[in-house]
Design a protein around this nucleic acid. Structure first.
Lengths: 235, 235
DNA sequence: CCAAAAGTGTTGTGGATACACCCATGC
DNA sequence: GCATGGGTGTATCCACAACACTTTTGG
């Protein structure tokens, strides 16, 4: 299907092709330290260029599918999951991103909560990596992930995306763990609690989390604006 | 050159085409009130769809030209100006943005200082409009401009983009006027001055602006990081 | 009773706002 | 002198960090 080019001048006659890629973040405990860390799934390339290297999940845009829908489909196809949060990251289009035909990639980033089924999807060609140890990837994908991490941390300090990593109810300490894992530094529990309570984004429930070997913490529920972030920012 | 389609199903077989558009902002005094306001240049469409309507300047991406270069070229071709600031805004690609063949637009936004030559370029097919009164534009361009305005105001409250609207030297009051025009509200001169001086972005010169009918204000010079904002954010 | 985490109180500090006041120029 | 904007001083408020302290559970 894809034409092959004998040389550069032929290549330059073709219009650039368009692809959608997605950086998918999830939180999982580190198997060694047990601490919560950021992970992301990558797929192994099965054709040239960069064959055998790991890369971001992605593919072409289908007719009559929006950019966002294409990103959600990437996510579904590689992890089986639905995004809890999905937002456009950047369009990468330098003429030298890829050898042979030029590709412009519109990249999205997503937050998910993986379940066992999703993690089990690991196989020869799909695997989860700690976000700070992905090795050398195909194309400019290392750079893209760095940028996505930067955006994630940035949004974290403002918005309410943290809840996209959590279930329907959670303790304040769990929210704090999410922040600590993403930002990579510890936060004062007392002050953090007050900051959260100052926002109108959460609501206390009457339940408590049992089973710890200490005082059971109260559970909260997210009640702020929709996280799904469809369409685009002006919110 | 562009193929014509007899019906929708034919259209859907074609891959989406790619275009670059640019929202160009400049500050000019309002001809009525004399107050500084935001303006932007638009071009009249000379072919279908939306023929005769005003639209953002744009066009296809050329081979071996980066996305950013294409945006700078748009700007140059429609205004004759070079950007003082240029940044990617968003990629718009809904399947219904345009009747007939689908177009994915990667949109940039720019800040410039227009000179007489640039403003003179007004003709049948290029004209400057106040940013809050552009009328009904082609495609989804009204929405795009709203988003660009939102981003501009956002960046304004942080970064040092304000200087992109100003010449090599300026008074603190001029900087304040820029902020007031963009944000649409008045700022306390005393506090604003201190905020600016607290940053390391400006440096006092030994010159004063003469000719006012009051005490001559001191001139300052921008010395902060490069504004041009090449490549992309991680800064 | 003790350990450990949940949760509350208190204090100090830096930045931002509001606003009173003085300075230097043109007329 | 007086009007006008340039420029300085200062009191107040508020968000936030630091950290001591109390509470409630499991063992």
């Amino acid at each position: 299907m894809t034409p092959k080019y004998a040389n550069v001048s032929e290549r330059e006659l073709e219009p650039p092709s368009l692809a959608i890629s997605t950086v998918i973040f999830a939180l999982r405990p580190d198997p060694e330290t047990g601490r919560l860390t950021l992970w992301l799934p990558l797929v192994r390339r099965i054709r040239q260029p960069y064959r055998e290297l790991w890369a971001l999940p992605g593919g072409p845009l289908r007719p009559s599918e929006s950019l966002q829908d294409a990103a959600a489909r990437n996510l579904q196809e590689t992890t089986g999951l639905s995004p809890r949060y999905l937002e456009q990251l950047y369009a990468f289009g330098g003429p030298d991103r890829s050898p042979t035909p030029r590709v412009v990639s519109i990249v999205y980033w997503a937050l998910v909560q993986p379940d066992e089924a999703a993690l089990a999807r690991q196989d020869e060609n799909v695997a989860w990596f700690p976000a700070d140890a992905v090795g050398t990837l195909a194309f400019d994908h290392n750079r893209i992930i760095d940028y996505a991490l930067w955006r994630l941390r940035n949004k974290m300090e403002y918005g309410s995306i943290a809840y996209a990593f959590l279930g329907p109810t959670f303790t304040l300490a769990q929210v704090r763990e999410v922040y600590e894992a993403v930002l990579g530094r510890e936060l004062d529990p007392a002050n953090f609690r007050r900051q959260l309570q100052a926002t109108q984004d959460i609501e206390r429930t009457d339940s408590f989390l049992q089973g710890g070997r200490h005082r059971p913490p109260r559970l909260y529920r997210y009640t702020g604006p929709e996280l799904q972030s469809d369409a685009f920012p002006p919110a």
